[in-house]
Simulated scan of single mutants.
Amino acid sequence: MLRSCLIAIVTAVACPAYAQSSVTLNGLADAFVGSIRMAGAPGRVDQVGSGGLATSWFGMRGVEDLGGGLSATFVLASFMRVDSGETGRFNGDPFFTRDANVGLSGSLGSLRLGRAAAPNFIPTILTNPFGDTSAFSPLVLHANVNNAAWLHRTTPSDTGWGNQVLYTTPRFAGLTATLQYQFGEQLNSTGNDGKKNVGVSVLYFNGPWSATAYYERDQVSNSGASAPLTTVVAGVAVPETKKDWMVGGSYDPGFAKFFVTYGGAKTDIADYDARTTSLGVSVPVGAGAILAAMARTKVEGTYDGSRTTGSVGYDYFLSKRTDLYAVLMQDRITDRSHGNSFGLGMRHRF
């Protein structure tokens, strides 16, 4: 008995009590085989690609209970290319591009510091049936991806912001809002010390209904280290201010889920005004769903033209974490040759 008491006392002294904490490793691997030709491209590319229905990523997140309803959090997450084994979405993408932040969370909401999703990201992926894929989602292609034939994406400063402060409100009757401020981190001697990105996003969920909205005013690029957004005029890079916004929603009566968005983007120096409309539907069929979406962007200014992209596919779930998919897509741009693409792929969440 005495020995048991001594062991208990020594253990209590040597191992002080810690607040409850947890760290989890999670991510998603998505790869497809297919053939890609965007509108205006000189030819097509037959390939094994990464991210046919979702951008592949891996990371870890942790939470520590500090007591009194307050928690400390951290998230570190990196994009990856399953087809080649390289990190990032493209060459030069920083390692923890998806997330790198610490924060506090409690009854008054959450406050985070570091890199996290930009205001445009969550509203965009929640209001189209193809999620966040930059390969086959018409809305994501129009919002986030430039190519040689189309330089008028509607979100000017990436889907993630670094060097930022984010505050997310508590949920009230299904409604949450996130306020975001990104520092430009420029020397005051350069004249760019006042450059910054500011934005807000709103999410609302109520039964079969959901609604999203965001607004951004961007002066800082997010190509790794912070740098002013610029537009080249007569061979000179001129500081640029871009504004973009979107409202959208979805409705799920049970037999299908319907999506709609409308948004725009406007620039000061490049001088263009873009407006994007998208429609989508997801129809449950068997163990999967038929997916269909269309996005159309009309641009006016120094460039007048439009882009229309449509995709249709089938996503079949082998389990809650693993699915197989097939997608066809057509892409059209004013005065350019149109492009047709397809992909057959697999996605696994862990």
Rank of each mutant, 00 (worst) to 15 (best):
R3P: 05
A8H: 11
I9Y: 09
V10C: 11
T11R: 13
T11S: 15
V13M: 14
P16D: 09
Y18W: 13
A19E: 07
A19C: 13
S21V: 06
S22G: 13
G27E: 07
L28A: 03
A29R: 04
M38V: 12
M38S: 15
A39T: 05
R44F: 02
V45T: 15
Q47G: 04
V48F: 06
G49C: 07
F58G: 13
M60K: 02
G67F: 10
G68W: 05
A72R: 09
A72D: 08
T73F: 05
F74G: 06
A77R: 02
S78P: 08
F79R: 00
D83L: 12
T87D: 08
G92W: 01
G92S: 09
P94D: 06
F96H: 07
R98K: 13
S107Q: 14
L111N: 03
G114R: 05
A116H: 11
A118I: 10
N120H: 01
F121D: 03
I122A: 11
I122G: 01
N128A: 00
S134L: 09
A135W: 00
F136V: 00
S137W: 04
V140W: 01
V140C: 01
L141N: 02
H142K: 04
N147L: 02
A149Y: 00
T154K: 02
T155F: 03
P156I: 00
S157W: 01
S157Y: 03
T159Q: 02
L166Y: 02
T168W: 02
A173Q: 14
L175G: 00
A177N: 07
Y181W: 13
E185L: 10
N188V: 10
N188Q: 13
N188C: 10
G191Y: 07
G191M: 12
G191N: 12
D193Q: 13
G194S: 15
G199P: 03
G199K: 08
S201Q: 14
F205D: 12
W209N: 10
T212N: 13
E216F: 01
E216M: 11
R217D: 15
V220K: 05
S221T: 12
A225I: 07
S226V: 04
A227D: 11
P228K: 07
P228N: 11
T230H: 04
T230V: 15
T231S: 14
G235R: 04
V236M: 07
V238E: 07
V238G: 02
P239I: 12
T241C: 05
K242P: 00
D244F: 00
W245S: 07
Y251R: 05
D252T: 08
D252H: 07
G254E: 08
F259C: 02
V260Q: 06
Y262T: 09
G263S: 07
K266P: 00
Y272P: 02
D273V: 11
T276H: 01
T277K: 06
L279K: 01
V283Y: 04
V285S: 13
I290R: 01
L291Q: 01
A292M: 12
A292K: 04
E300W: 08
E300I: 11
G305S: 12
S306N: 12
R307W: 03
R307V: 04
T309C: 01
S311A: 15
S311Q: 06
Y316S: 13
F317V: 01
S319M: 13
K320C: 09
R321F: 09
R321D: 13
T322H: 05
D323A: 11
A326T: 14
L328M: 13
L328A: 15
M329H: 05
M329D: 05
H338K: 14
S341P: 01
L344S: 09
G345N: 08
